[in-house]
Amino acid sequence: MNLFRLMGDVSHVLAVFILLAKIWRTRSAAGISGRSQILFTIVYLARYMDLFFSFISLYNTVMKLLFISASCATVYLIYFKFRATYDGNHDTFRIEFVLVPSLLLAFIFHYSMSFFELAWSFSIFLEAVAILPQLFMVTKTGEAENITSHYLFALGSYRALYILNWIYRYYTEGHFDPIAVCAGIVQTILYCDFFYLYVTKVLQGRKLQVLP
């Protein structure tokens, strides 16, 4: 554990809770992509199956359970409890376009040809692109509410901080995980455009609007 990874994890947890709290307190899922949230739930379930047979630390176990339960709760709020407020008309990104390539990539790049390792690789590739339905929705509606922007900023920062953590770990312990690093870089690049808008608009008190 180093400061970069800790900050990355804090940012990740913050993102998850910002989103849950926003939906709960406004009693609305407007502007939130249910499809992205389903993809994140698949990511956590596929990656954290190791909960049952490998113990890393209490910290890891608690975080894994937290991500699985929070993402399931988010999907439940969007598709069941506050379904009437969910903006399905604008949430039209075809998720098979990210599910199928992630699965194919997992069959090509993995650390061993076992079910759990393939699921792990699949989850890493899927996580990199799971936000696409949400970004697509923001582009389609042309704007995002400020809390949604804070959520996206915290979620994007998490993988960017992990990149610093990987650089640090490479120099201090010789640790190098090429699959996670490549996917993590792609994931962070996807947020770059949003980061720019966030800094130039949201942080200056304006609403995030995308040019047509």
Binding site: R5, S54, Y111, D177, A180
Partner: peptide, 10 residues
């Protein structure tokens, strides 16, 4: 790369 398959990150 041996450390990679340990998956000690989230």
């Amino acid at each position: 790369v041996s450390a990679a398959a340990a998956h000690d990150e989230l």
